[in-house]
Each structure stands twice: as structure tokens, then as C-alpha cells.
Computed example of a mutant assay.
Amino acid sequence: MGVLALLWGSTFLWIELALEALSPVQVTLARCLLGAGTLLVLCLKSGQRLPRERAVWGRVFVAAFWCNALPFAMFSIGQQTVDSGVAGVLNATTPLWSLLVGIAIGTERGVRPLRWGGILLGFGGVVLILAPWRGAGIVSWGALAIVAAAASYAIGFTYMGRTLAGKGYATLSLSTAQLLAASGLTALSLPAGGLAPVRVDPAVLVAVVILGVFATGITFHLTYRIIADEGATDAATVGYLLPVVSVGLGALVLDEPFSLRVAAGMLIVLVGVGMTRRKKPAPAASVHPPSPLTTRGRS
């Protein structure tokens, strides 16, 4: 979980650097292709095969749209107007969306008032970060695109957990197939700004490679493993740690401003997410001394 948070949290920095020379569509396609290539090499070296069933590939394409192609594009579009640190903070709403999706489809039952309060508090923190009363600045279609990406992640995680992860397929095989599918889906959007000429300097090239290989390929495989082992909602809780990584890298590397309002909003979002993860404790099992009859039977 810690490695995933570090890699995933750095994604927003690499996107910011890649956008200096590439369009959002080009950034999205590059990270999908590099991530898929990385996992395909690992898949072949380990002797694992990609899924062969047509029904499985159908589910893979649906998951690839919600968990890869759509949110990757939304982040690249959003970060044209939103700093990388703030993008990481807004992405921390993924666990809130995941809980709402679980409530909607019935996998989260008996939600206590504390968790509902966490949802309201978390989205209140997002409102504080966006500051719509200011009428300018951080409030933009870009910020809304990033929030939409976080919601798309939640839908994708839930779908993967219900239809793909833990169904007898190797997670490396599934994650490779899904990034290949995402590459195909993203390629369909190339006419929308993806055919512009590219002049990539070495710094941008390094950022794109790190974004694709580590922050997309390796990160996505780790996410798939956590979904298979612990479930979609628990996998989404890695969002707790992303703002710390994204804000820290944005301030240190890109010299991005970090106001007290954004800091307060981030804290409120994290507290709200924490409240949604507080589950009702299981009742303690009562312990009864063994009866003489039971004791004699054992002896």
C-alpha cells in the first residue's frame, strides 16, 4: 500500500511535466502503451497468458474504460488548469465515491450516520478547495474533470472487484489485458488533439517514461492485486496518502503554491474519508465455561 501510494501520488507530477510538450490525448495514450508494454514483458517472462475467453475480454474493455481510458484522459485535461498537488487532493475523494457506489449497488449495507457524515464532510472539503464563491481561479472545468476522474476510478474499482478480480484469473494477466484494452480505446480519440506534432525534450521524455512504466504499469498491477486481496473499497483507501505525496512533490519540484485554504480542505477531505472507513465493530464473542458433560466427553 505504501509503495502504491508513492507511485500513484507521483503520477500528477509526471502528468504536469508531460503536458509541457504533449496534448492530453497524447499523454493518455503514451502512459497506456508504456504501461501495457511493461506488464506484457512481465507477463511473458513469468509464463502467464492473456485471457482467451471473449466474455472476459468484454468485461476487460468495460473496466478499461472506467478505470483507465476515461480517468487518465480526465486527469490530463484537468491538469491543464489545475496544479498537480491539488489534483492529488481532489483524487483523494475516490474512497468517498467508492462508498457511494457500494451503497447504490447494495454492497455497502447498513451505513451508519458516522459514515454518512464522513461523506458530507469529505465533499465539503472539496467545495472548500474549489472555492466556488471566488468566481475564478481554481474553479474550472479542469477541477471538475479531476473530480469526475476520481468518481470513474471508484466505478472501475467496483466493477473490477465484482467481475474480474478474484475470479480465478492471474492479476498480472488481467492488468496487462486491461491496459492493452485502454490503449485501444484511447487510440480512438487520437483525432481529438492527438495528431498534433510533438517535440519532446529529454526531461519530458523521462517524465513520460516514468509515468508509463512505473506510475501506470506497476501502479495498476499493484492496484489490481489489492482489489483481488482486500476488495475495491479497501483498495480505494490508498487515496488517504496521495495528497501528501502529490502536494509535497508539487511544492518541491514545481514550486506550486499551497494556500491555507487548500491545506484546510485537504485535511477535511482526509478526515471525512477516515470517517467513512470506520465500520461498526463486531460484537465480542461470549465465552462460557465448558460444562462437566463436555469436559468428560473430551477426556
Rank of each mutant, 00 (worst) to 15 (best):
M1E: 14
M1R: 13
M1V: 12
A5T: 11
L6G: 01
T11W: 09
F12H: 03
I15V: 15
A18M: 07
L19Y: 05
L22Y: 10
L33W: 11
L34F: 13
A36H: 07
T38V: 04
V41S: 10
L42E: 12
C43H: 04
L44H: 10
G47R: 00
A55T: 14
F65G: 00
N68T: 12
L70V: 08
A73F: 14
S76C: 10
I77A: 08
Q79H: 08
T81M: 12
V82T: 09
W97I: 01
S98Q: 04
L99G: 03
G110C: 11
L114W: 12
W116I: 13
L121F: 09
A131R: 01
P132K: 09
A136E: 15
V139G: 14
L144P: 04
A148P: 01
S152K: 00
F157T: 08
T158L: 05
Y159K: 02
G166N: 02
G166I: 06
T171K: 09
L172F: 09
S173F: 11
A177K: 00
L179V: 07
A182I: 06
S189Y: 13
L211V: 09
T219R: 05
T219Y: 05
T223C: 13
I226G: 07
I226C: 09
A228G: 07
T233G: 14
T233K: 13
G239P: 04
Y240A: 07
V247G: 01
A251Y: 07
A251L: 11
V253I: 15
G265D: 04
L267I: 12
I268Q: 08
L270C: 08
R277K: 14
P281A: 04
A282W: 10
P283A: 11
A285Q: 15
A285I: 14
S286V: 15
V287F: 13
P289Y: 13
P292G: 08
L293D: 15
T294S: 14
T294P: 06
T294W: 12
S299W: 11
